[in-house]
Write a protein that binds this DNA or RNA. Structure first.
Length: 418
RNA sequence: GAGCCUGUAGCUCAGUCGGUUAGAGCGCUAGUUUGUGGCACUAGAGGCCGUGGGUUCGAUUCCCAUCAGGCUCCCCA
């Protein structure tokens, strides 16, 4: 390969013209479905204060410990956002969105950045869409959030997935459970994996998430958090499950589901797909009732999820789902000679004015080459203009799909195609 | 941070058991039709065979290093 001087950074990708239609198609679906759910879009800066992410996501998480892109400029510490829950909550607090009344039903689409080793389904710049419902502790909010997530995949036609849910409890339940879990693991502490040993004190629940073979035996028989939930959290979880059943959303309760961010409380859920390979999470989320206060707002319950767009595309490819139709243009004006070329250039806006997409050759090519180009551009019609047509005021309109052509005045063509 | 794998035309890949001008398919340009696309045929453009060093009379081919990329672990979307 001839050496390129400038390339994208590792794990970062251009979305090229052949790819961009499917991105737009997905974005359109998200916007449309969000509108049906009455979610409102929020857009926040790519850069946030480093401290926000550290506080919001958690100092001990892998994301903060080793995956953030951060730099200092002047007196400010900047970080490329690794996720959007903390920034959205920051915005909610900063702009007093609670004053709009009710609960805020927000959604977002955009790029995130994590400094990980890239692999299939994992890039350094990647894209998520997601929802944050801030201001409600009702299980209805949890379930609407999940329902929205599922609706996106249902509409696209991805059906082959597994929705897992769990409750990670409220602080009171969790402290109780953590000590039970430590007591359970303690006799075998030395046999746990190195990583699990590190997590034992500060975050023993993450041990449940371990994939280390030596941990599995202990995880299998570990006490289950559901048995230690207090009444409120237990009722909350029961209701979430009940509502999901009522909505006929299939799920499995996974007592080992523990999510990576520190801010989760009560409901946690994850959508995985067997079509993705190693990085199999399509989307994940949960409730974070303490985060708003942590970031400096009034105590405010909230729930949300984030979904990976690249991973959704991988699943689409595996399932042969085309999100966007092939490109096409209504009219390609083929010109012969200088007068015709000028006519073509001035006719383009007249067609476009009537909502007809139109283009022509920019390279002064032969008619044959223009026809080939029209074919490549997937033109529905070619409008062929030479001296004959200019004289008569009637132009040849060729239907490229049917391979038939006829003569029309320009008004006739516009009437036919508009 | 660790493991495995790969670097030959725009893309996907052959190939040289080390030896004069490095190949295919697709794509691109043009022609066969100086007013007509998709099919076909013909021609053309496009590669210091990732980079540096070593072995050798000779390296794209062997060895070492380096850079880049991919997959996997970890973790997450």
């Amino acid at each position: 390969m001839p050496k390129l001087t400038y390339t994208t950074h590792l794990g970062m990708f251009d979305i090229l013209p052949d790819e961009s239609p499917k991105w737009r198609a997905l974005e359109n679906i998200i916007h449309e479905e969000a509108a049906k759910f009455n979610f409102e879009e929020i857009r926040t800066p790519i850069l946030e204060q480093t401290e926000l992410i550290k506080r919001g996501v958690g100092q001990l998480t892998d994301i903060v410990a080793k995956e953030i892109f951060a730099f200092t400029k002047g007196d400010s510490n900047y970080v490329l956002r690794p996720e959007l829950t903390a920034p959205v909550v920051r915005s909610f607090v900063e702009h007093h969105l609670d004053q709009r009344g009710g609960s805020q039903k927000l959604y977002y689409i955009g790029p995130m950045f994590r400094a990980e080793r890239p692999q299939k389904g994992r890039q350094r710049q990647f894209h998520q869409f997601g929802v944050e419902i801030i201001g409600s502790d009702d299980p209805v909010a949890d379930v609407e959030c999940i329902a929205f997530m599922m609706q996106i995949y249902r509409r696209i036609g991805i059906k082959n997935f597994d929705l897992k849910i769990n409750s990670v409890g409220d602080p009171e339940s969790r402290e109780k459970y953590k000590s039970v879990l430590r007591d359970y693991l303690k006799p075998n502490f030395e046999e746990l994996s190195e990583l699990s040993q590190k997590r034992f004190e500060k975050n023993p629940m993450r041990i449940l998430d371990s994939k280390e073979p030596e941990d599995q035996e202990f995880i299998k028989n570990a006490p289950v958090i559901r048995d230690y939930l207090n009444e409120d959290s237990s009722n909350h979880f029961e209701l979430v499950c009940e509502y999901l059943n009522k909505l006929e959303i299939d799920f499995t309760i996974d007592p080992l589901l523990v999510r990576g961010m520190d801010y989760y409380t009560r409901t946690a859920f994850e959508l995985t797909s067997p079509d993705l390979g190693s990085q199999d999470a399509l989307a994940g989320g949960g409730r974070y009732d303490l985060l708003v206060e942590e970031i400096g707002g009034q105590p405010t319950p909230a729930v949300g999820f984030a979904a990976g767009m690249e991973r959704l595309f991988i699943a689409c490819e595996e399932l042969d789902i085309a999100l966007a139709p092939p490109k096409e243009v209504d009219v390609y004006i083929v010109t012969l000679g200088g007068a015709a070329r000028t006519w073509g250039l001035t006719t383009l806006p007249k067609l476009r004015e009537h909502g007809i997409s139109a283009t022509m050759d920019y390279l002064g090519r032969s008619m044959r080459a223009q026809m080939k180009d029209a074919n490549r551009e997937n033109a529905n019609y070619t409008l062929i203009v030479g001296d004959n047509e200019l004289e008569k005021g009637e132009f040849t309109l060729r239907n490229m799909k049917e391979s038939e052509e006829d003569s029309f005045t320009l008004d006739g063509i516009i009437a036919k195609l508009a």
